[in-house]
Amino acid sequence: MTEFSNKQIITGNTLLSGEAVFLSGDDTFGPDLFNAQIFTDDVSANHALSQCIERSDEIISPYLVSVDVQNSVIRPQELREQIRTAGPSNYFHGKQTEIR
């Protein structure tokens, strides 16, 4: 069952490796989507995003991504973001190899 109806997370790529990462509740960026902090209103999401933009020594071009959450599983709504969170579909590369 869907727990929220209008949810967003913050994502970006790390400066050093370029890896796609997600802002978590402890204010750190990490590679695991399931740790991502879910924002349920635009005001708090945009406020957090503006703070992330200041962290350009760590994260490149952070932005908001709309997600669905079902049974605590986070899933981006757009295919592009689903691919970013999993890895390419032609090889077993990227995050899909590290899903814990």
Binding site: G18, E19, A20, I60
Partner: peptide, 15 residues
Amino acid sequence: PLRLMNGVYLQLHAY
């Protein structure tokens, strides 16, 4: 622009 002049892009998963 400096990295792009040297062929370094940022794509979905990595540089």
